[in-house]
Simulated assay, not measured.
Amino acid sequence: MSTRESQNHGIRRLYATALELGPLLLFFIANSRWGIYVGTGVFIAASAFSLPCYRWLEGRWPVMPLVGAFFVLVFGGLTIWLRDETFIKLKPTIVNSLFGIILGGGLLILRRPLLKPIFGVAFRLTDDGWRKLTLRWSLFFFVLAAVNEVMWRSFSTETWIASKMFLSFPLTLVFAFLQVPLLKRHWDGEESPFG
């Protein structure tokens, strides 16, 4: 990959990350100003807006944000319609558990690492590397589901929302960073971009 291609890829990745985090950040801000129901409406609108932007930027529909946005629409819609914040609080538990089950089930039942078709464009790993990475992410999604359960059942709505930005998101970044040695070790083909 040339320097220009690498820079363009880095810029696109930055925009894609902003599109993934933007709806959550707007939810956080709107909730702090106008409450959970307005915040949830903003979350739904921002999620719906970010998907076509992501499609235009990356040239494909993003699988995980697409599933997440579907559940934001369903559970956010139920939250607003029934005036019950429990639904939006359950959404991260259900989505993370679903991702964990799909990834783990792919390994156990299909004997396939289902992260490969999703991230195969970005990462070139050996089959063993894909299996290990998929297993780790599967287990981590269950950790995120458990964290969400503890936070929404044990703390105030404001603390639960803050935990999305200041606990779950940093945990995910740290976990992703900790996978770099595995990516280096199992990189397949040309020189690894991880050094």
Rank of each mutant, 00 (worst) to 15 (best):
N8C: 05
L25K: 03
P193R: 10
F194D: 04
S6R: 14
L51T: 08
V72Q: 04
R112F: 13
M151T: 01
G41N: 09
S47W: 07
L135T: 11
F140G: 06
R124I: 06
V174L: 15
A176W: 15
L173Q: 11
I109E: 03
L78S: 08
L19I: 01
G105R: 04
V63H: 05
I94L: 15
S168T: 15
L135H: 09
R185Q: 15
G100R: 09
V67L: 08
V42Y: 06
L98R: 06
A18L: 09
V174C: 00
W34H: 14
F70G: 14
T126K: 00
L125D: 02
L26D: 09
A69P: 00
F87C: 06
V143A: 02
E58N: 11
R111Y: 14
N96H: 14
W152E: 00
R4Q: 12
L178N: 06
F175Y: 14
L110G: 04
G105E: 07
T79N: 04
P170L: 06
L115N: 01
R112I: 03
S6E: 13
V121W: 08
V143P: 01
P65M: 04
G120I: 09
T40Y: 01
R153N: 02
V180M: 01
G106F: 07
L25T: 08
W34D: 05
V121S: 04
P113W: 03
G22Y: 05
L66R: 08
K164M: 10
K89I: 07
W130K: 00
A69Q: 02
L115I: 03
F177A: 13
L73R: 03
F49T: 13
L24P: 02
V121R: 15
M165S: 05
R33A: 12
V121P: 09
L107D: 10
F123Y: 14
S50G: 08
G59F: 12
G10T: 10
W81H: 11
P92R: 12
M64Y: 14
T134R: 00
V121N: 12
R12M: 10
V143Y: 00
N96D: 08
S168M: 13
P113D: 03
I80R: 01
R136I: 08
R112H: 11
F27I: 01
Q179W: 10
A46H: 12
A16F: 06
N8T: 11
V42P: 10
L115V: 00
A16K: 06
I94H: 07
W130D: 00
I80M: 06
R4K: 11
I118L: 09
A16Q: 09
V42I: 15
M64F: 15
D127E: 15
A145I: 09
T17F: 04
V150T: 09
F71D: 02
L108H: 05
S2P: 04
G195N: 13
P65D: 02
L171E: 14
I161M: 10
F142I: 09
G77M: 03
A18R: 06
L98W: 02
A122R: 14
T134W: 01
V121C: 01
T86R: 15
R33M: 12
I88K: 01
I11Q: 03
F155K: 03
L144N: 10
E158T: 12
G76L: 02
V180H: 08
T126F: 12
T40S: 05
R153Q: 10
W130R: 01
W137A: 02
Y15F: 11
G77T: 11
L114G: 03
P65A: 06
A45H: 07
P52W: 08
